[in-house]
Design a protein around this nucleic acid. Structure first.
Lengths: 256, 256
DNA sequence: CGCCAACTTGATGGCTGTCAAGTCAGGTGG
DNA sequence: CCACCTGACTTGACAGCCATCAAGTTGGCG
């Protein structure tokens, strides 16, 4: 049961949060920004090369919240650049375990896991209404030959995905629940900040269960740990609205 | 303390194992096989293309057991194809956590994590005397432009690395100790088999601690679980010599 | 208004980490 | 050749973190 003070406090925060940001924020990103973020185009490309690159990204697709962009086992043909919205990628193992392998926001690329086997190995699900650019992979490879800079950018992109996964291996392999959650919140914060949004206040697009699936924890542990962070004054949290109050302390938790 | 019967049994197994395979097996792989495994060359390449590709792989380097091939933070210039031997890659976090992110054997490629930042993000350490082909990355990208098949093979290679990491996320995020170890043994078995070695009998090149670091477990848990597998008749294990006795039961553990 | 999914919180148990002691194998030096 | 030493490993006892089970709350939606 909630304590009296907790309830009133939480309601107050909820009202604040809603006042500032509508419940379902729709992140809009201009194409140039989107491209720039992951393929780093502006730097080092000539006008004509830029034109070629834009061809790659000109087909778009809208995905409603809850819908899948692609599913594990489907034939691979394209990778996807997120223009707006929020996705999770998850895989379901032979025996039914559901593991979230990533959360993805505007400017990030999904689907590269499908290149190796020519089939996607996980499902990509929109957690809010979203829009993606469809990048036919064969076309990307063709252009990579014509414009070596595109090739190089793509290699760096995939490599960074590998490094990101190494980070997750470290998290899952050696961190305790509170460290995982602190790292998770800081990571989201940093990524929102990089897109021009508040680093200290944002809303989670995913459920506690999805957070748990990503971090190797049960939803109750996620809930409990977030509640404890709030009790200790590290964050404010009400439903999916989060406010980071003590960035330094959270960092301390991860490094401790 | 070991029981009488366990001791005699283990000694017997150790003797058997030693009789069949010298303590430090040196895996030798002809260059063609090595290339074939990960870059899948024979298929679809013309004679001249094959020649170009061989240029990529002609510089070799020997690494003694215990030595590093590269270290986190070092400038990235090349990726490495393992010709023979056995490696682990591991990263040490800011706060000193040591996470093993992979074990690598003949025919596999290491170092792709360095492309994104132009610095390696982990250390690669030889667990036995090994030999690698040095593949200058700039050269690989140049050849990718000339020979699109090389480009495509490389993309598939990186993609498979991503998928492999997804598998590790699933393992670390949702499996219990015995499931992790069963999966680990089966994975090694399958990879040895793919190289023409016994699928049921091999020796571990890594310590219990390194296994633990890879699987997100403490060395005591690794040791205990392996001992239990032996007690239950799933495996025989004596030091680093392993023999899988009940492949099906191990598979059952992973899927259960 | 009622229902349901998402969430919070409590109680309890089990898996795995921690600490500790001891064994074993290999290498070194006398 | 043997004693010793060290790193790797095994095993036991215990504790703690997190999963599990369960009950109740909240907000959204029909």
């Amino acid at each position: 049961m909630y304590t009296e003070s907790a309830v009133s406090y939480q309601r107050e925060f909820a009202t604040q949060a809603r006042g500032k940001a509508p419940k379902c924020v729709h992140i809009k990103t201009p194409c140039a920004t989107c491209l720039a973020r992951e393929l780093c185009l502006p730097a080092g490309l000539t006008e004509s090369q830029l034109e070629r690159l834009k061809e790659l990204f000109h087909v778009r697709q809208r995905i409603h919240a809850g819908q899948s962009l692609y599913r594990a086992g489907e034939g691979f043909a394209a990778i996807y650049a997120i223009r707006s919205g929020f996705f999770k990628t998850h895989m379901i193992s032979e025996d039914g375990r559901d593991q979230t392998v990533g959360f993805h926001m505007a400017g990030e690329i999904m689907g590269m896991d499908g290149i190796g086997s020519q089939r996607y190995t996980c499902d990509a699900v929109a957690l809010e209404d979203s829009e993606v650019c469809i990048v036919p992979f064969a076309l990307l490879e063709e252009m990579s030959v014509e414009v070596p800079q595109i090739q190089n950018r793509f290699h760096k992109l995939m490599s960074r995905e590998l490094v990101r996964d190494f980070g997750m291996l470290l998290l899952l392999g050696s961190m305790r629940a509170e460290e995982r959650l602190a790292a998770f919140l800081l990571n989201l914060s940093q990524r929102f900040a990089a897109r021009g949004y508040s680093a200290s206040e944002f809303n989670l697009r995913m459920t506690r269960e999805e957070i748990g699936s990503y971090l190797g924890l049960k939803l109750e542990t996620v809930s409990r740990t977030l509640s404890r962070f709030q009790k200790e004054g590290l964050i404010q949290i009400w439903q999916k609205q989060v406010k980071l109050l003590d960035h330094a302390a959270l960092k301390g938790l991860v490094k401790a």
